[in-house]
Design a protein around this nucleic acid. Structure first.
Length: 274
DNA sequence: CTCCAGGTGATGG
DNA sequence: CCATCACATGGA
């Protein structure tokens, strides 16, 4: 099915922006996305035109919100440029990035796992966890893959089971998330109605979830674009490029989006000539 | 061998 | 409140 995306949309940059860990490239111009039990193959036909492997209904119900297509990133780049010189560089460099609206449970577990791991290691851990607990398998024309496991599917996992998957000291953290969500102590749907600060606070009731992980879940799952996660790369940017002063207060409701441009810029700006 | 990776919790001041 | 430190694992 033919899809037009007139706004910013660069799959390669989105894949390299450290927000989704199950995105893969197939051949030169096709990208695979996974959310819940949906898989999408998106082939870039020409500028702004894509062939999507799903129905119109699935596109509108699942993928349009997933790609945050109701938000105009071109307009945001335009309105936020001119406030900070380094952010301006990052915004220009990262044109094409979007903030994906991903599954809250998957983001919670993924970013618990992410601490003190590099991005390839996070990706591997997410795949291993899915292979171990995610059912039923999804069969497409191209491949067979496992969905990210639902909380109930991990309910009887032991700490040792999770350590065997390479989660290390994060294993009890993941188990605490499983226990809280399965018991209803943490309702990932209900908290979507909370204000940003209360949402962050609720997420941090899980062991192993601190300020940074809570901000990642808020931004990448709940679409809270005022939330700007500060990790080692952003700390480095503030220290070395922003004269020790966080630029994010300048951007209010778009701080999280600017954060994502800066994160991508810090990690990729030296790879220009390749 | 050492160092580091999208951090957090515990501890001590 | 802020500064240290331990924490598992794998790759460079």
């Amino acid at each position: 099915m033919l899809i037009e995306i007139p706004d910013d949309f660069d799959p390669k940059k989105i894949a390299q922006s450290g927000q989704c860990f199950r995105m893969r490239q197939f051949g030169k111009d096709t990208w695979r996305f996974v959310t819940k039990d949906h898989v999408l193959y998106l082939k870039n036909i020409e500028k702004n035109q894509f062939d999507a492997s799903c129905s119109r209904a699935e596109w509108e119900e699942t993928w349009q919100p997933y790609f945050d297509l109701d938000r105009c990133y071109r307009k945001i780049r335009s309105s936020e440029t001119g406030k900070h010189p380094f952010a301006d560089e990052a915004i220009s460099f990262g044109r094409g990035i979007r903030i994906l609206r991903q599954d809250p449970w998957e983001m919670l577990v993924t970013f618990i796992i992410s601490q003190r791991k590099n991005i390839p290691a996070i990706s591997k851990a997410v795949e291993d966890l899915s292979a171990a607990y995610g059912n039923p398998v999804i069969v497409t024309e191209r491949e067979t893959l496992h969905p990210f496991p639902a909380p109930a599917q991990m309910e009887h996992a032991s700490e040792e089971d999770l350590r065997d998957l390479g989660l290390g000291y994060r294993a009890p953290y993941v188990l605490d998330a499983v226990r809280r969500v399965c018991s209803g102590a943490l309702d990932l749907f209900s908290i979507s109605n909370l204000e940003d600060d209360k949402l962050l606070e609720s997420l941090q009731t899980v062991r192993g979830v601190g300020v940074k992980v809570a901000n990642c879940v808020s931004l990448f799952a709940y679409g809270r674009c005022a939330c700007a996660p500060v990790d080692v790369w952003i700390e480095r940017a503030i220290r070395e490029e922003c004269d020790e002063k966080s630029p994010f207060p300048l951007y209010g409701e778009n701080a999280g989006i600017i954060q994502q441009y800066i994160f991508f810029y810090m990690r990729n700006r030296d790879e220009e000539r390749a």
